[in-house]
């Protein structure tokens, strides 16, 4: 087998064929002011301030350990569940600081859903997985209602066609890509406003990744989506805005096109051309 290798500079397309950039810039959904995060003595995030638009996909990029996941977990206060983790600063969503004492993290998390790196369906049936959120939050008033929500969520997650005939089988019996779409369905079943995704495709094969990316692009119509990724190509494909983190600091944020074609900061330039990372 003969292999011809042509050395070309990396080409990063900023718009996938199916992606349609909004004509008008979206209003700000979440506005972050001066966030610092500490794990015990160690400071993980250093004075982060950024605006996240609604009904668009914002990508957090940066080398591993740069703090992008930590920051993501600030937005639904998942860091509360980690012993020894301390968050300082303001994250204002719809005019309210989510770190305020009056905010109930339980309510907040119903509004801000999250999808994790590795698909984590509960060891329950597919139906019960999706019904989990509506059940605990008391969203459905009766069984028909619940079934309706489950069906709608699975449809939105593009999974309905594949699982409608086996809703009683365990969620863990699905393939990795299906599991990830199942947990996305689980997240949207409680009708959140924001969906956080922590490297949602890193455990998936390319075909499953493409399905999930397509799904993200569709969900953008309805939800504010924040996605952490260390695949720059993915960020370029799915996001409208990109935020670059490095060593616990926010280096640069802007529209995805700008960041990838014309970064202001040399460190961003270095990262997207592969010199650091």
């Amino acid at each position: 087998m003969v292999m011809t290798m042509t050395l070309k500079p990396p080409v990063i397309r900023t718009a996938a064929p199916h992606s349609h950039h909004p004509a008008t810039p979206q209003p700000t959904k979440i506005s972050v002011r001066d966030i610092n995060v500490f794990y015990g003595e160690k400071q993980a995030l250093n004075s982060i301030s950024v605006e996240i638009p609604g009904k668009a996909v914002t990508a957090f990029i940066g080398p591993s350990g740069c703090g992008k996941s930590t920051f993501l977990r600030c937005i639904n206060r998942m860091n509360d569940t980690i012993a020894g983790c301390r968050v300082e600063g303001q994250i204002v969503m719809d005019g309210q600081d989510i770190n305020d004492r009056s905010i109930d993290p339980v309510v907040l998390r119903a509004k801000v859903g999250m999808v994790f790196q590795k698909p984590n369906p509960f060891p329950k049936s597919i139906f019960e997985n999706v019904a989990y959120g509506p059940r605990i939050h008391g969203i459905a008033s009766n069984k028909q209602d619940l079934e309706g929500i489950v069906e709608a969520s699975l449809k939105k997650a593009g999974l309905w066609a594949e699982v409608s005939d086996r809703l009683n089988q365990p969620g863990t019996s699905l393939s990795g890509g299906q599991q990830q779409r199942l947990v996305i369905a689980r997240a949207i079943a409680v009708n959140p406003e924001v969906i956080l995704m922590d490297e949602p495709c890193s455990a998936l094969d390319p075909i499953a990744t493409a399905r999930v990316e397509e799904l993200i692009d569709e969900l953008r119509q309805q939800f504010c989506i924040v996605i952490v990724t260390h695949s720059m190509a993915q960020a370029a494909r799915v996001s409208q805005r990109t935020v670059f983190f490095h060593m616990g600091e926010l280096i640069e944020s802007g529209s995805t096109e700008e960041i990838f074609t014309n970064p202001r900061e040399p460190r961003t330039q270095d990262y997207i051309t592969g010199r650091i990372g």
């Binding site: 109930d104 339980v106 309510v107 939050h137 008391g138």
Partner: peptide
Amino acid sequence: AAARLKKRH
């Protein structure tokens, strides 16, 4: 919803 939340807590 508020009453439900109270019950949950």
